[in-house]
Computed example of a mutant assay.
Amino acid sequence: MYEPIRTKSVHSTMAGAPSDFPHRSREEELDIQLAGHLAALLAVTDELRATAPSADLDTAAERLAVQVARLRGGRKPARSTSPDRTPDRTPDRTLDRTSGPAALHGRAHALAGRALVVAASRADTAAAILAAERMDAHAAAQAEAQELTGVG
């Protein structure tokens, strides 16, 4: 009824057979994923620092950079080169709700949530605590922005 397979499988199923490509363990994959989420959160944090500087964001950025470097074997993450720049004040930018501080806090909250899930899966307490703290901070900032604008 079925035609037999005539070619050798490209997937090695034999135990102990050498492979032509490197394999990573689950822990290594989780490290890579967690570092990626934290690096993305760091990028959004740097963007927030550029629009609304604060000591809390500065501290958070430094802590995120330390965690990303730890997960990447000591390699420092790429950072924004100008955290001290003033925000754009063009009319289009102020009316655009997808790029304002509230939207950035929303993105940061989502990224911190993803990092928290991976950190919990990996059993990385330090990263999980940092991600949870950032989620709380960004949720509070979103709530404050909604109170100020009356939207919600």
Rank of each mutant, 00 (worst) to 15 (best):
residue 50 A to L: 00
residue 84 D to Y: 11
residue 99 S to G: 09
residue 117 V to P: 00
residue 54 S to D: 13
residue 86 T to E: 15
residue 22 P to S: 14
residue 13 T to C: 05
residue 41 L to C: 13
residue 126 A to R: 12
residue 134 R to Q: 14
residue 151 V to N: 09
residue 9 S to N: 13
residue 99 S to Y: 01
residue 75 R to Y: 02
residue 117 V to S: 02
residue 15 A to Q: 07
residue 25 S to N: 07
residue 81 T to C: 05
residue 33 Q to A: 11
residue 71 L to C: 04
residue 58 D to L: 01
residue 6 R to D: 12
residue 26 R to E: 12
residue 29 E to L: 14
residue 78 A to E: 10
residue 34 L to Y: 00
residue 140 A to C: 01
residue 43 A to M: 02
residue 141 A to C: 04
residue 152 G to A: 13
residue 13 T to F: 13
residue 131 A to F: 04
residue 100 G to T: 03
residue 144 E to F: 11
residue 125 T to F: 08
residue 9 S to H: 09
residue 128 A to C: 07
residue 122 R to E: 04
residue 79 R to W: 04
residue 79 R to E: 10
residue 21 F to R: 06
residue 49 R to V: 02
residue 79 R to A: 15
residue 36 G to Y: 00
residue 100 G to C: 15
residue 83 P to H: 11
residue 63 R to N: 14
residue 15 A to H: 08
residue 63 R to P: 07
residue 26 R to Q: 13
residue 117 V to C: 02
residue 75 R to P: 03
residue 72 R to C: 15
residue 59 T to W: 09
residue 140 A to L: 06
residue 71 L to M: 09
residue 7 T to C: 11
residue 114 R to Y: 08
residue 16 G to S: 05
residue 62 E to I: 06
residue 60 A to G: 13
residue 55 A to R: 15
residue 130 L to V: 12
residue 60 A to P: 01
residue 50 A to I: 00
residue 149 T to V: 15
residue 2 Y to G: 10
residue 108 A to M: 01
residue 58 D to G: 02
residue 37 H to E: 14
residue 141 A to H: 00
residue 2 Y to P: 05
residue 98 T to A: 12
residue 146 Q to W: 08
residue 14 M to R: 12
residue 147 E to D: 12
